Simulated scan of single mutants.
Amino acid sequence: MKAIELFAGAGGLGLGVGRAGFRAVDVVEWDRWCCDTLRENRARGAGIIRHWPAPREGDVRGFSFTQFEGKVDLVTGGPPCQPFSLGGRHRAHQDHRDMWSEAVRAVRETRPSAFIFENVKGLTRSTFQTYFNYIFLQLSYPEIVLRSGESWLDHRARLEQHHTSGIRTGLSYQVLPPKVLNAANFGVPQKRERVFFVGFRSDLGLEWSFPRETHSREAMLWDQYRDGEYWDRHGVSWRARPVDPRASDAAMRLRERPAELPWRTTRDALAGLPDPELLPKGCADFPDHRFQAGARSYPGHTGSPLDEPSKTLKAGVHGVPGGENMLRRVDGSVRYFTIRESARLQTFPDDIVFHGSWTETMRQLGNAVPVDLAEVVARSVKLQLDYVNARSGRA
Rank of each mutant, 00 (worst) to 15 (best):
K2S: 13
K2M: 07
K2V: 02
L6M: 09
A8V: 09
G11F: 09
G12R: 09
L13S: 13
V17R: 09
F22I: 06
R23G: 12
V25Y: 01
D26R: 13
V27I: 15
V27D: 10
E29V: 09
W30E: 05
W33E: 15
D36K: 15
L38H: 12
E40P: 04
A46S: 15
H51D: 15
P55A: 06
P55H: 07
E57I: 07
G58Y: 04
D59A: 01
V60A: 14
R61H: 08
T66M: 07
T66G: 00
V75H: 10
T76L: 05
T76M: 12
P80L: 02
C81I: 08
Q82Y: 04
G87H: 08
G88V: 04
H93W: 10
W100Q: 01
E102W: 06
V107T: 02
E109K: 10
S113K: 15
I116R: 09
N119W: 00
L123A: 15
R125L: 14
S126P: 07
F128D: 00
S140A: 15
P142W: 04
L146E: 06
E150I: 10
S151V: 02
L153C: 01
T164W: 11
I167Q: 13
Y173P: 05
Y173M: 04
P178V: 11
V180S: 11
N182G: 02
N185V: 03
F186G: 11
G187T: 11
V188I: 12
V188H: 10
V188G: 09
F200L: 10
S209W: 05
M220I: 01
M220F: 02
W222K: 00
Q224T: 00
Q224S: 01
D227R: 00
G228N: 03
W231N: 01
V236E: 04
D249L: 03
D249F: 01
R253S: 13
R253C: 06
E256N: 11
E256F: 12
P258N: 07
E260M: 11
P262F: 02
T266N: 02
K281Q: 12
G282Q: 10
A284Q: 14
F286M: 01
H289Q: 08
F291R: 06
Q292H: 12
Q292G: 01
S310Y: 03
G316M: 02
P321I: 00
E324V: 13
M326G: 07
G332M: 10
V334Q: 13
S342N: 07
T347F: 02
F348S: 08
P349F: 06
F354I: 08
T361F: 11
Q364C: 12
N367G: 13
P370C: 04
V371W: 04
R379D: 09
R379Y: 03
S380E: 14
L383W: 09
L383C: 13
Q384E: 13
V388E: 15
V388G: 06
